[in-house]
């Protein structure tokens, strides 16, 4: 998944290699809480990205899923 937000993308790849962080992030299905959690976990590990960047990435991902789904 490419991203317009390089720090967020680097953290995303970090999470994909870390089942513990994945478990933590799966604990909430509330999007607002999820965004807060992601920004917080990223910050703890030295990644700098913002909540609006995560929200934009979620919207982009949703659009791309829809496009693939009807492909």
């Amino acid at each position: 998944m490419s991203s317009n937000f390089p720090e967020l993308e680097r953290f995303r790849l970090d999470v994909l290699a870390n089942p513990d962080m994945q478990r933590t992030l799966r604990e909430t299905d509330d999007q607002e809480r999820f965004v807060e959690l992601l920004v917080s976990l990223g910050s703890e590990r030295g990644y700098r990205f913002t909540a609006p960047e995560v929200e934009e990435a979620l919207r982009t991902s949703w659009r791309s899923w829809i496009e693939r789904w009807i492909d």
């Binding site: 998944m1 995303r12 999470v15 994909l16 994945q22 992030l25 799966r26 909430t28 299905d29 999007q31 999820f34 965004v35 992601l38 995560v54 990435a57 979620l58 991902s61 949703w62 899923w65």
Partner: peptide, 11 residues
Amino acid sequence: LRHPFNLLFRH
């Protein structure tokens, strides 16, 4: 895919 984790994280 309604879960935000699955929207953002996929292998």
